[in-house]
Design a protein around this nucleic acid. Structure first.
Length: 441
RNA sequence: CGGGGCAUAGCGCAGCCUGGUAGCGCAUCUGGUUUGGGACCAGAGGGUCGCAAGUUCGAAUCUUGCUGCCCCGACCA
């Protein structure tokens, strides 16, 4: 993409409404624009990152055996009356009346709807297990939206719902999502730690929050350092096989948010392994049994011929929130530092002097990088060098290639690693093969 | 929902107390000089001063009501 033809409204000054760093940087980097409290327009650069995150989430859901569908944002109040949540949900639910005076709502989540879809078609244990997911915009009318996309009212969320014939099998469905989550966050370059979460009235140990460590995180967390050293399950993991060993290894070291913190248990952790840090919740998984299937009559026939309500679980990932979490965990004074897998572009190509001999060198590199599968944002604007460097650092592409008359004299360009700040002079050919090898799939 | 604050050009702000032709910096446009880490000079364009009522000869400024947004807390993915 040529910057001269792109839409990248960068702000030089800090918007006063943005208090935390991710919000500030997203506004400054031209990724989002607030349209209303907690509601944002996604500008081109923001959409690119959002899409990449969504894609990783979808791939890992499918790998774990979940099947993608897409449910609407607007739902009927009747469905929610069946579960009793229409009355229970409160003002957080945005209620809408259509032209026929029918009560509708903008969905804050989809348990009722997915249960309705399930009960309409599935009758037998032979159709189980089943895990259906979608990635869709949700709306929760938060009293006080804040922190930009981290706590918006409208947000993009992946929610998956598992259906099993009994609790034992539901646990396996839960484990599959647990492993999928470990892989998903890891692929985004995040350290997300599963922490035991409050299960509410259902009880049991089947609820975990996935927390990303970031010094600017909203909640306090306590953990045993050992959990940071655990290996993320590989791509080759057999999701139909026994996953309990993986789950055990990830749930044994102490890790808890302040709400679930147990000072006595934490006391058992060796002094030099105790870590207290801050974190951001990016995912939440839980098993809730037959809460909705009972209320809504979602039953399947068992092998013995009787009918039982299905055991369900639901599994959320805050896709739009992840942008904020990623930036909180990856930035410096100059701007964002995207992990390779979610960067809006892989490389920023800076033409130091448009209209000179740098043009042809840039054009050639641009074409060859793109042909090699590298996503390039080519800064071909006729502006000062300083402004280009500052913009590139701000938007945080993993690599920058600087093509200037000075370097070209000796047949070289500069390749800068945004994260390390390391700069290296090399021939355009060497830069090309280096970056193609980093980013080619 | 309790407490606090803000609303003046695209962004950041001054002016308001003490009413009298709406200003500054950045950004934008034009011309020139510059050109490897957010240049300089000269000029130009751009504002129903959040909305509505009131007081007044006259309101960005005073009064009342409303709306929007931000921060702290409670709540939440």
């Amino acid at each position: 993409m040529r910057l001269s033809r792109y839409f990248l409204p960068i702000l030089k000054e800090n918007p006063k409404e943005a208090e935390i760093v991710s919000h500030r940087l997203m506004l400054r980097a031209g990724m989002i624009r607030q349209q209303s409290a907690g509601i944002y327009a996604w500008l081109p650069l923001g959409v690119r990152v959002l899409d990449k995150i969504q894609k990783i989430v979808e791939e890992e859901q499918k790998r774990a055996g979940a099947v993608q569908l897409l449910m609407p944002t607007i739902q009927s109040a009747d469905l929610w009356r069946e579960s009793g949540r229409y009355e229970a949900y409160g003002k957080e639910m945005l209620r809408i009346t259509d032209r026929h005076e029918r009560e509708m709502l903008y969905g804050p989540t989809n348990e009722e709807m997915i249960t309705d879809i399930f009960r309409s078609y599935v009758r037998s244990y032979k159709d189980l297990p089943l895990n259906l997911f979608h990635v869709q915009w949700k709306f929760r009318d938060e009293v006080r939206p804040r922190f930009g996309v981290m706590r918006g009212r409208e947000f993009l969320m992946k929610d998956a719902y598992s259906f099993d014939v009994d609790q034992e099998r539901a646990r396996h469905a839960y484990n599959r999502m647990f492993v999928a989550y470990l892989r998903t966050f890891k692929r985004m370059g995040l350290t997300a730690i599963p922490m035991k979460a409050d299960t509410g009235p259902i009880g049991g140990d089947l609820s975990h929050e996935f927390i990303v460590l970031a010094s600017t995180g909203e909640s306090e967390v306590f953990l045993d350092k050992d959990i940071l050293a655990l290996e993320t399950p590989s791509e080759a993991t057999d999701f139909d096989g026994d996953l309990s060993e993986i789950i055990t290894s990830w749930t044994t070291p102490y890790a808890a948010t302040d709400e679930m913190h147990d000072e006595a248990a934490f006391g058992q952790v060796a002094e030099d392994k105790k870590v207290s840090a801050r974190g951001i919740e990016v995912g939440h998984i839980f098993y809730f049994g037959t809460k909705y299937s009972d209320a809504m009559g979602a039953k399947v026939a068992t092998g013995e011929g009787s009918e039982v309500p299905v055991h369900m679980g639901s599994y959320g990932i805050g896709v739009s929130r992840l942008l904020g979490a990623l930036i909180e965990a990856n930035h410096d004074d100059d701007g964002i530092i995207w992990p390779d897998s979610v960067a809006p572009f892989h490389v920023g190509l800076i033409n130091m002097k448009p209209g000179s001999e740098t043009d042809s060198a840039c054009e050639e590199l641009y074409a060859k990088l793109e042909a090699g599968g590298v996503e390039v944002l080519y800064d071909d604007r006729d502006t000062r060098a300083g402004a280009k460097f500052a913009s590139m650092d701000l938007i945080g592409l993993p690599y920058q290639i600087v093509v200037g008359p000075r370097g070209l004299k000796s047949g070289e360009v500069e390749v800068k690693n945004r994260r390390t700040g390391e700069k290296e002079m090399m021939t355009p050919e060497a830069a090309l093969s280096k970056l193609v090898s980093v980013f080619a799939d």
